[in-house]
């Protein structure tokens, strides 16, 4: 996988960008030519340059979400030539470099599209649905200060490693954007699996998966049809095996909570 250092020949591309002034306003594609593109430039840096050009011309720049620009915060969210985060594998939009394109390319840039991710402006979408899902159960209830010594609960390395694979999710929403059904299953699967694989996450395991799936459904995401478009675009290469695990966890939780005996005092709580 040794890449040749590309020659620094500058080139030109055309950006075909989705412009939408506000959530309710209609949107359309607008073309912007970009010359003197350096292959070592990141795609978002090209947008910066284009935006400065628009500003100077008195036009409004393209709104796009971005922050850390190193592929970890999950803010950036462009669908480029139909693929969330653009060409490449295991990267976020901010990690896409112009060396992935060629002179004369027309690059179509769209927002992540899903009913659950309404467009706020241009390429910026509202992904608060993910936060809602987390608030429903994406946690281990531990009050600050109540924790036992960290080494009192050993975690087999294999489980910790697998949990880490799931926990690597950056919450960008590319899985939703790529899914033909705009399903959030890979995101929820990653969250449920991360906590479900840790011994600390066991007490709330059933309650968590049921609550998170319920919230996911209410947010208007589609259903998983096992096509694995999600994992194909995940910037952290999270595998759809976690979706199988989520399905299993959900089924178990459904039957367990239905048939497990419940304490008569369960509703009362400690007075």
């Amino acid at each position: 996988m040794v890449a040749e250092k590309p020659s620094k020949k500058l080139f030109s591309v055309t950006l075909r960008v989705w412009r939408q002034p506000g959530p309710a306003a209609p949107g359309k594609f607008v073309e912007y030519p970009a010359a003197n593109v350096n292959p070592d430039m990141s795609f978002l840096e090209l947008l910066d340059v284009v935006n400065d050009g628009l500003t100077v011309k008195g036009e409004e720049p393209i709104a796009f979400a971005h922050d850390c620009r190193e592929g970890i915060c999950g803010t950036c969210s462009c669908t480029i030539n139909g693929k969330p985060h653009g060409p490449g594998h295991g990267i976020a939009t901010c990690q896409l470099y112009m060396r992935s394109f060629q002179d004369g390319d027309v690059i179509v840039v769209e927002p992540f599209r899903a009913k659950a991710f309404p467009i706020q402006r241009d390429l910026v979408t509202d992904r608060a649905a993910f936060d809602k899902i987390q608030q429903a159960g994406g946690f281990i209830s531990v009050r600050t200060g109540a924790a036992p010594d960290a080494n009192s609960i050993p975690v087999p390395k294999e489980d910790a490693d697998l949990a880490m694979d799931a926990a690597a999710c950056i919450g960008c929403g590319a899985c939703v954007a790529a899914c033909k059904n705009a399903s959030a299953m890979l995101f929820v699967a990653a969250k449920v699996s991360h906590l479900g694989l840790m011994p600390q996450g066991q007490p709330e395991r059933d309650r968590r998966v049921l609550a998170m799936v319920q919230t996911m459904d209410a947010a208007g995401f589609g259903n998983c049809t096992n096509q694995y478009e999600c994992s194909a675009v995940c910037p952290k290469n999270i595998t759809h095996d976690f979706i199988a695990r989520l399905n299993r966890d959900y089924a178990k939780a459904l039957f367990r909570t239905r048939f497990k005996p419940v304490s008569g005092a369960a509703a009362g709580g400690a007075g």
């Binding site: 075909r16 989705w18 594609f29 669908t79 030539n81 139909g82 693929k83 179509v108 769209e110 599209r113 899903a114 009913k115 659950a116 790529a178 033909k180 059904n181 705009a182 399903s183 208007g220 995401f221 589609g222 259903n223 049809t225 096509q227 694995y228 478009e229 194909a232 675009v233």
Partner: peptide
């Protein structure tokens, strides 16, 4: 439900591995 989950289609349709 799945159709409703994406009311506005992409300008460029792209399939990765479905």
């Amino acid at each position: 439900e799945n159709r409703a989950a994406r009311p506005v289609a992409y300008g460029v349709e792209h399939t990765n591995r479905a």
